[in-house]
Design a protein around this nucleic acid. Structure first.
Length: 337
DNA sequence: GAGCTAATAT
DNA sequence: AATATTAGCT
């Protein structure tokens, strides 16, 4: 692995704060920590600088401006387009605010006034991102990564790696914070757990809250389940409709799919023992028993992680940020016509 | 507040 | 295209 990781002159940090005097404070502190510093006191200029220098900005420190949306905007933009680790700073550290930024991709949240000790440590976010990216690219080369980082004397990086990237036997990501993208990806696995929950409740009795409880997935929200459920029901309607279409061409329509508890789902991946293919080329879920790795089973996802607030087998969702092949994502196959 | 649906935003 | 969020309603 080629790690031209430490830029010779120090990591290049871009600081954005609407208060110029605080900007210079930050600058001095950061220079003491031997970073290279660029400062901006307004968002627009900062953004255009980022666009022009995306390869040479290692880290962004951005104040949470009063119009919250500004810093959120930067955050989303930067994390989604350039993948530059971004640290938010603010004097207001209430949980809700912090959550907002963290869930939108912030690498860290620092509370003003900044202590120099904290700034000394922020370099690790740069490597956390890189490690994360490479880790996802070549799963088999984890050790190489760790070794090379270790050999570079970046002990904290490996510590961070060990603690931040946790996977269990199923290859399931165990903590949301390992994932940089902020959008949930409904993988086959996650969808199966969803289906299992829905089925064990009964299709008509399944509501987001109950499903969420049954799924036992850490950090999954009711809203996300609701959204998925909405789409799932759409899918159900759609496929039952297409099943019945053409038999009553003009006279009546049947908008009510209150059919059965038969669930038709179509999967883009034929590797499941609980599925078979029917005439339509659809796969039908025939085994409603719960998958081995989700609810009910005696499974306990213990891998000695520290913040495991789930003694009873909670999982985090498994989303893969750079899935190109999408071999794990669930596909809704609607009729093209 | 929870849930549903449709519409809209990202 | 998939997911998230919002609005209007029960």
């Amino acid at each position: 692995m080629d790690h031209e990781l430490w830029p010779s002159g120090g990591l290049r940090v871009l600081v954005i704060d609407n208060n110029p005097s605080y900007l210079s404070v930050m600058e001095q502190l950061l220079i003491k920590c031997s970073y290279k510093v660029t400062t901006y006191n307004n968002v627009r200029e900062a953004m255009s600088f980022i666009y022009g220098n995306q390869q040479t900005v290692d880290l962004i420190i951005c104040d949470a401006f009063f119009p919250t949306e500004d810093s959120l905007l930067i955050l989303r933009e930067v994390t989604s387009k350039f993948d530059i680790p971004t640290v938010i700073m603010s004097s207001n550290g209430d949980t809700r605010t912090v959550m907002k930024y963290i869930t939108n991709g912030a690498s860290d949240f620092l509370i003003k006034p900044m202590r120099i000790e904290e700034l000394k440590n922020i370099w690790q976010h740069v490597f956390r991102k890189k490690i994360g990216a490479e880790h996802r690219k070549c799963n088999s080369a984890q050790h190489v990564d760790q070794l090379s980082y270790r050999s570079m004397g970046i002990n904290q990086a490996t510590t961070a790696l060990d603690s931040e990237i946790r996977e269990n036997n199923n290859g399931t990501v165990t903590d949301i914070r390992d994932l940089k993208k902020s959008r949930l990806s409904w993988t086959m696995q996650l969808h199966r757990q969803f289906i299992a929950a829905v089925n064990s409740l009964g299709v008509d009795k399944a509501v987001p809250k109950k499903i969420l409880e049954l799924m036992k997935v850490k950090h999954l929200t009711r809203e996300q389940v609701a959204s998925h459920l909405q789409k799932y029901r759409l899918h159900l309607r759609n496929s039952t409709q297409t099943l019945h279409k053409d038999d009553t061409p003009s006279s009546s329509s049947h908008p009510s799919p209150n059919e059965s508890s038969i669930l038709r789902t179509q999967l883009n991946n034929s590797s499941s023992d609980s599925l078979y293919i029917d005439q339509d080329g659809c796969m039908e879920i025939t085994d409603y028993s719960l998958p081995r790795d989700d609810l009910s089973s005696g499974s306990n996802c213990m891998l000695g992680e520290r913040n495991n607030y789930s003694p009873e087998g909670f999982q985090d969702f498994r989303w893969d940020p750079d899935k190109q092949g999408s071999e794990t994502t669930y596909l809704w196959n609607f009729e093209a016509e």
